[in-house]
Write a protein that binds this DNA or RNA. Structure first.
Lengths: 189, 189
DNA sequence: TAGGGCATGTAACCAGTTACATGATTAC
DNA sequence: GTAATCATGTAACTGGTTACATGCCCTA
């Protein structure tokens, strides 16, 4: 499963340009799948070559032309085949947690700043998930899986926020204490 | 921040072989940073070339020789510099959630199976985090950041488990209902 | 006038995954 | 006999990130 598959998936919701697909990625998949233009545009080109999508060029005045992509029958079948064949993985790659793990090697002030930045980022993400569920989504019916994925994001990010808020000060204090050094009686190796 | 940095980090806890470093990755970083032998061994070779670690070869009978790595002063400094310069990211890449998002395109039975598999996987991961916190860790004092990272894993995975358990049946039912088709009166496009 | 939105793309780079290659020991 | 543990590595592949390249409109 790669960006191509997700593009096919987005196109099941209706015809879209590459730019709009990217926006949809950010609205709907932001908390579990990232992709930039650098992967979306080549993916669409490939899908087009493979006959899984068609495109229609639309001229615009005062704007560059845009290419509106549409899923073909073959594309729909390919999407389902790909989904069926996908082993369900779930990976987290967190430089943030690495930094927390090695907090004792960093200045306490920086740890506090890193946590605060992470909190801010998660708050944005949580709002994004909340909007996804709340927003009726312009007449398009909200699919059950959409609600599930966004709901998952909400509760998990909420749990993450609660945890870091609850333990922030303790971690900073402990690191500060271990850096100034424990009482002399315990300082010896 | 890459596998090299994590290897340096593990080596702050004591001398280790590549094999042991991999085990440590699995114990301590499993829920937020993955790495296989294919990335660890080349990383260690590179660190050695750069003078950030030294190695001592140990002969063993009935076993292949092993290489025990030790952090150098330069390695310690490089680790801290790298940590200080690392922008704290936190990314999730979840084929599982993609599959859930597009659940309406899959057979309900498969959705149930995918969720159950995910639950099993998370239970293992949660146990791993719990062990990390509970286990005194063979005389090595548990660093505050270690407890933080493992505690984070526990509560977040717990939240994920609670969510999918609570919504599993509903999702499967909704998908089943939409596939057999809504009542005829609503079936029209 | 600086930045953000709209709109599309290319190319180099980087890093991790996967598969391959070897080989003895121990436990089920 | 099959799998897991210990133990190390290489090489091809894959795929995503980042930076570059273009260009106009609108808002602050």
């Amino acid at each position: 499963m790669d960006v191509k598959t997700l593009c096919l998936g987005v196109l099941t919701e209706g015809d879209r340009t590459g730019y709009e697909i990217k926006q949809r990625f950010e609205e709907a998949f932001n908390h579990f799948f990232g992709a930039g233009f650098g992967s979306i545009y080549p993916a669409l080109a490939q899908l087009s070559r493979d006959g899984l999508v068609t495109l229609r060029e639309v001229e615009q005045d005062k704007r560059p032309d845009k290419k509106v992509y549409r899923l073909t029958e073959a594309g729909h079948r390919a999407l389902i085949a790909e989904l069926m064949a996908t082993p369900p993985r779930h990976k987290v790659r967190s430089e943030f947690l690495v930094l927390m793990y090695f907090a004792h090697l960093l200045p306490p002030g920086q740890i506090a700043a890193i946590i605060d930045a992470q909190i801010a980022q998660w708050e944005g993400l949580r709002a994004c998930c909340a909007a996804c569920v709340a927003d009726p989504g312009k007449e398009r019916p909200l699919q059950p899986g959409e609600r599930f994925a966004a709901g998952y994001g909400q509760v998990v990010i909420e749990a993450a926020l609660a945890f870091v808020r609850a333990h922030r000060d303790q971690l900073v204090d402990e690191v500060a204490a271990s850096r100034t050094g424990p009482p002399a009686s315990l300082a010896a190796e």
